[in-house]
Amino acid sequence: MNILVCISKTPDTTAKVAFKDKNTKFASEGVQWIINPYDEWYGLVRAIELKEKDPSIIIHLITVAGADADPIIRKALALGGDEAFRINVDSQDSYYVAAQVAAFAGQGRYDLLFTGRETIDYNGSSIGGMLAELLQLPYISLATQFELSGTIATVKREIEGGEETDQVSLPCVVSCQKGVAEQRIPNMKGIMGARTKPLKVLEAVAAESMTSIVSFELPPAKAGVKLVPADQPEELVRLLHEEAKLI
């Protein structure tokens, strides 16, 4: 069984969000980069758990990015996974990235493809669905639990106000979120081992991008909190009613 885990490099959750070049680019100076948490905590860790149960499973990691993504790929390899691939090109839009991964994954090369629910920078929630369509595979989005029995996957996924349980024959694409696995921290053995695991750099295939970012904007700053004394909670209700007109 072969599993492909898609990972992406994103600014750390606490990174300052600012833009440069007339607000056309993210100001990445001094930003700490991490593996997109949804890719790492859920997709990757679940793949590792499956391999712990069945050591014959091979886990490949893929990312579409320049060489500045290598540190996060090494970190991912330190958690687990057998081999990593980096398509050496700056991602342009979701479709472009999905097309690169689809071209790499080809038809039938992987039994299971994991993505995170979304990246925490562009919040597209798009790669999994696009990848599934390009490969003509079933797609289960927003998975909260993933179990494998032979070649049948049983997946719980979030639906509006509840959960749905699906069964699907592999191969399939699954986008993962909270519940699928628990966050792990790489141990020293993993970190040492990751140094010698193969990280192959591949050239991009020709693909189109369908969208482009013209500019970024920051939301207007909040006016500041209006504090109501703790002994006058009815004043809060009056403000919400008369000033904010919300209740």
């Binding site: 929630s125 798009s126 696009m130 989005s141 927003l142």
Partner: peptide, 24 residues
């Protein structure tokens, strides 16, 4: 709508129709 249903279908449809998607 960029809800659970939209997140499941819109990206697939985008890839199928080669139609650019803006989500959210």
């Amino acid at each position: 709508t960029n809800n659970i249903t939209g997140k499941a279908i819109a990206p697939r449809l985008s890839a199928r129709l080669k139609a650019g998607l803006v989500s959210g």
